[in-house]
Design a protein around this nucleic acid. Structure first.
Lengths: 344, 344
DNA sequence: ATAGTCATTGCACACGTGTGCAAAGGAAAA
DNA sequence: TTTTCCTTTGCACACGTGTGCAATGACTAT
């Protein structure tokens, strides 16, 4: 049995109320008494019970984070950003990986609500707002990173995927590419569509277009999927001269497929990624990609949530609801001018 | 304010005790009453308060997991294994990344103890047993994965690193290598020493040895460190013909350093990794490594902990304390016979 | 009809912490 | 000396859930 304030009370010869106040730093306790209590607490290795405290204060100082999984380095970086901001403010994280499984997601949300988390961050996974119905959303702040659900959430952090995708497309077009394909990830709702839109917008802006057979959606965003997806393009009667991939993992997988097929990158085909994960600098050739401010995205999401929490118990100085961050093009070595005969 | 059992009690016209019993499935409630209560609970979106429940039952159904970070895919796989087993048994995880920071680690442990986690898993990071002194260890089960601390913990899951390392060394020796170097990770206490020992044991077993200047410890286990570490070996007056790396990340980083230095792998130098992370199949060339049963390690650690928990509140059928798992050699394309002139 | 058995329910307390309120005591002011 | 004020402390209740025990009522056995 752990030591409680009652134990300390008995030993120091005061009431448990006084102990509680002393340890919380209340001014309603004589200095000498407080010091005596603190010493006793230290000596007894006292640690307050979070359960009892939150039961009384209605605050758990825990934030829930839902994401599809941590296998993708992109998410672990975002998570780092969230963790950094939360930790600095004295909050802990309760993390749930849904793995694209609706049942599991439901259980995660339920557990989080039972734990009475102070707020939630939904990271790039489509969680229906209906799941949170147990608690009125205005009393239970939720911040969404790259909202994938159809529902509208009041507070969110977006990465400007359309802009990022246009930067990549512009780079390819400037190199002389005219036949640019897109390898998407069907597991990722809105994000993959935005990135496709960015390509299409930039193409149309330059008077070009993306042929329907140059769009392929892989059933996931992993290395393996990237290899398989690239093979689809390579086997086309008229393969593209460049392939824009949904993310770096797909792109690195695609590079392997090219190598196995004997297609040289970037001489015969250009490939781009998205995210700029640590590995992309170490691929062969090093990957041209869009550097997303991953840590910053996570950090800002957490800070937005934290400011909502401090508002909640005070003035309602309406916080900015939606924040959009932009990434920047990072040209490495998987993009080059298309071979002459392929140039339109 | 969320609905509580008292709300339900008022509405259904019974006492809160009856509601509590009905929802917990106690046989002490008439079927009709129980059904009526269940319906009301459903309708009111009732979710029990984990804080109140655990305050009374002394069980939180939460397991703490401490690891150095989730950036390394090895850990995210182990974490998956832990999560799988815990989730199946109705337990949630409270995850803390220490990032090799002692202060942060202290805060993590403190928070976990305040949360009154039912048990803990320490994953490949040196956490002193002293940190848990607040609770007698026999009442507070802890399982350690690849113990890095000097302290002895009663329950642990080990990967047989010495065996794995010997497998890799044997493979290289059989190929004809005599001058094999080791690139370690000084942030990882016991593990890196074990892997070095494995190499040394196998070398001595074959009547060979590892020269002191052929041992280098990188200050971390990242891609970047791998590249820097490999440069050390390449700049040696007499470079090794093969380098065994602490893990796959270092190895992949090393591959890049070789490429930049114009040293061909595996023709001029062989490189091996450790772990078999997803990326290692996609490196250039694909990495020869030791396939560690990552998911299984995590799963078994969680199961060991869970069995300790069920013991705790019942019979003491002493559970097996230490479990050792072995990995298997995975030969890909970064290892080959040394060049003739280099052969001793 | 009476006693005994059993199913069902409510009362009351406990878990560990926080806090409004009153009480006690001492010091300062009148 | 009496009054007032302030400091310090304890009492008692609350948070939401679980459970031992007693009370109630119905049914069965004698």
């Amino acid at each position: 049995m752990a030591t409680t304030i009652k134990t300390i009370a008995k030993i120091t010869g005061v009431s448990h109320s006084t102990v509680s106040r002393a340890l919380r730093g209340s001014p309603l306790v004589a200095d000498v008494t407080a010091e005596r209590i603190r010493i006793a607490a230290e000596q007894l290795d006292y640690l307050p019970s979070a359960a009892a405290r939150s039961l009384k204060t209605k605050r758990t100082h825990v934030l829930g984070v839902i994401l599809s999984g941590i296998a993708d380095p992109f998410f672990s970086e975002v998570l780092n950003g969230i963790e950094g901001a939360a930790h600095a403010a004295g909050y802990s994280l309760f993390i749930g990986s849904s793995n694209h499984d609706a049942d599991k997601e439901a259980r995660i949300v339920q557990t989080m609500l039972e734990q009475r988390i102070d707020g939630g961050i939904i990271c790039s996974t489509p969680v229906s707002i209906e799941r949170w119905r147990q608690f009125p959303t205005d009393r239970f702040p939720i911040v969404v990173i790259n909202n994938q659900a159809a529902d509208h959430y009041n507070f969110s952090i977006y990465h400007d995927d359309i802009d990022g995708s246009r930067q990549l497309a512009r780079h390819l077009i400037e190199l002389g590419h005219r036949k640019i394909a897109y390898l998407g990830n069907s597991h990722s709702g809105k994000t993959t569509l935005d990135r496709l839109s960015g390509l299409q917008e930039e193409m149309e802006f330059q008077g070009l277009s993306v042929a329907p057979d140059q769009i392929h959606h892989a059933p996931g965003g992993s290395l393996q999927m990237g290899a398989e997806g690239m093979n689809y393009f390579l086997n086309l009667p008229h393969p593209p001269t460049a392939v824009m991939c949904f993310n770096d993992l797909l792109a690195i997988g695609a590079l392997k497929a090219c190598r196995q097929a004997g297609v040289r990158v970037p001489d015969e085909i250009s490939v781009t990624g998205f995210d700029n994960i640590a590995f992309s600098e170490f691929s062969v050739p090093p990957l041209t990609t869009l550097d997303q401010p991953k840590y910053e995205i996570g950090r800002q999401a957490a800070q937005l949530l934290l400011s909502l929490l401090s508002e909640e118990s005070g003035l309602h100085s309406h916080t900015q609801g939606v924040k959009v961050l932009k990434g920047r093009l990072l040209v490495r070595a998987t993009t080059a001018k298309p071979r002459k005969k392929e140039t339109l």
